[in-house]
Computed example of a mutant assay.
Amino acid sequence: MSRRARVEPVPGEPAAVARTDSERVLVVADYHAGIEAGLRYERGVELESAADVRLARLERLLDRTGPDRLLVLGDLVHRIGPPDGDEVDELVRVVDRVTDRVPMTLVPGNHDGGVADAVAERAVDLAVVDSGGIRFGPVGFVHGHTWPASDVLRAEVVCMGHEHPTVKLADEVGGSRVERAWLRGRLDRSAFEGHVEGARNERVTETELVVVPAFNDRSGGTWVNVDGQTFLSPFLPDALPDGELYLLDGTRLGHYRRV
């Protein structure tokens, strides 16, 4: 099986199916449950909650892909710090509905500091792993806000979230639009030297890095093809010098800096 075949995007969706040695894993990133409550608190922005819409989309993906597990690549909730109120309500509903069907794993992101406690208090079944990520056979998973564990870097494919990659597309008459996109390509191990033990292990074959688009369409993103944009992850863009962009419908746009 090729490295690319290990992680296949679900056409038209900000989600992928990763094939490990023993499971088919549905992968989503940056769900940001409770984002409307967070935006109200942070910016005074009033938006009607889309919690039901998000959950329905996730359940349709479970129906469509029939995975053995759901893995969330961080930022399951939105507000940094312990979730509260509407955020907890949405979090518990999501975890309850998912774990009625399949096991659920969270690789915690920078917004997930209080998730484990919030879940434990309500006895819902969510496995929260170390922030350095986790590896299931040939596929590694990390949020991307901090340096990954060395075992994750030994995977054939590494999936990450955090960046919310988007692409700004312009037409010939000056109009433009911004779309969520996949960013993927060869992982450059030199970007991890001095931060991850054994980053340049010569026994490790070439690794592909897959940056997964945000599941939540209200969470913004990094315009990766616009000069002057600063990446959020400490190892991007250095770890992905030849990354290519793909739209959610599978359209290949080419090198992200030349789109």
Rank of each mutant, 00 (worst) to 15 (best):
L91D: 13
V92Q: 09
D171L: 03
D217I: 00
K168S: 13
S150N: 07
D30P: 01
V95Q: 12
V196R: 14
D63C: 01
L232Q: 05
L232K: 09
V72N: 09
A199I: 08
M160D: 00
S22H: 14
R6Y: 03
R257V: 12
R24F: 02
E163R: 00
D171K: 01
G144H: 05
H143A: 10
L76E: 09
E206C: 01
V142C: 04
T222C: 01
V119H: 08
S22M: 07
D68T: 11
F136M: 13
V107T: 06
R101F: 01
V25M: 01
G133M: 08
E87Y: 11
Y246G: 00
V28D: 06
R40E: 15
R3T: 10
V72L: 13
E202K: 09
V204S: 05
E193D: 15
K168H: 07
D238H: 10
A5R: 08
Q229F: 02
D112Q: 10
E59W: 04
V259L: 04
Q229D: 08
P14Q: 05
L169H: 02
R43T: 00
V115H: 15
L55A: 07
G66T: 13
D188C: 04
D21G: 08
G254E: 07
E163F: 03
R79L: 14
R101A: 06
D217E: 14
A37G: 13
A127Y: 04
V7G: 03
H111T: 07
R189T: 03
A123S: 15
K168D: 12
R257G: 12
A118R: 13
V115I: 14
A123F: 14
V129D: 08
G194N: 10
E208I: 04
A191D: 11
D89Q: 14
V158Q: 06
S176H: 15
V10G: 05
R184E: 15
H32V: 04
H78G: 05
G66W: 11
M1S: 10
D112N: 12
G140L: 02
V158H: 09
E42L: 10
E42S: 07
D30W: 02
D63L: 05
H111P: 03
G81P: 09
L183H: 02
V10Q: 10
D217N: 03
V77W: 06
E23I: 00
A116G: 04
V17F: 07
R186N: 06
T105G: 02
Y256S: 07
R203A: 07
V45N: 01
T20C: 02
R93H: 08
